[in-house]
C-alpha cells in the first residue's frame, strides 16, 4: 500500500475569509469566555488587597483607575462580557431548537448590540481619564 498524505490542519485558519457567521460566533465565544476567566483571576487579585486593610484597597483601586490603559481595558471588558452574554443567550436558544434558521442574524445582532453598549459606556468609563 502506498503512502497517503496528511495535510494536517493548515487549511483551517488559513481560510478564515471563508468562515461562515456560525464559525465566527464560535471563535468569538471561545475567545470571550477565556478572556472572562482571565479577568476573573485579575478581579479576585485586586479585590484581595482588601485583606490587608481598606487603605491598600483604596490606593490600589485609585491608582488603577487613574491609568488610561485600565479605563480603555474596562470598555473592552464590557464589550467582551456583553458579547459573551448575548451570544450565550443565542446559543441557549439554539440548544432549545429555537431560531436555528436565523442563527446568522442573531450572531450579527449580538455584535451590533455589543458595539452599541460598548460605545454607550465610553463616557462612563473614560470620564476624567484625560
Amino acid at each position: 500500500m502506498s503512502q497517503s498524505h496528511n495535510r494536517g490542519l493548515i487549511e483551517d485558519f488559513g481560510r478564515w475569509r471563508e468562515f461562515a457567521p456560525g464559525m465566527w460566533a464560535w471563535i468569538f465565544h471561545k475567545f470571550t469566555g477565556w478572556v472572562l476567566i482571565g479577568y476573573l483571576f485579575t478581579h479576585v487579585a485586586v479585590l484581595s488587597t482588601a485583606i490587608s486593610g481598606p487603605q491598600l484597597y483604596t490606593t490600589t483601586l485609585r491608582s488603577l483607575e487613574s491609568l488610561l490603559l485600565v479605563r480603555v481595558l474596562e470598555v473592552g471588558l464590557l464589550a467582551v462580557a456583553t458579547f459573551h452574554i448575548m451570544n450565550g443567550i443565542r446559543l441557549l436558544f439554539i440548544d432549545l431548537g429555537v431560531g436555528l434558521e436565523s442563527q446568522d442574524k442573531s450572531f450579527y445582532a449580538s455584535l451590533v448590540l455589543t458595539g452599541a453598549i460598548a460605545v454607550a459606556s465610553v463616557p462612563t468609563f473614560l470620564s476624567g481619564a484625560f
Partner: peptide
C-alpha cells in the same frame, strides 16, 4: 457538536444538519 453550523453551510443536499443534531441532543 458545538453548533458552528459549518456542516449545514456546506451540505450539498441542504440537509439542516445542525438542527437535526440539536434535536438529537434534546
Amino acid at each position: 457538536c458545538q453548533t458552528q453550523f459549518s456542516c449545514t453551510e456546506v451540505c450539498p443536499k441542504d440537509i439542516p444538519l445542525t438542527e437535526h443534531i440539536q434535536e438529537m441532543k434534546r
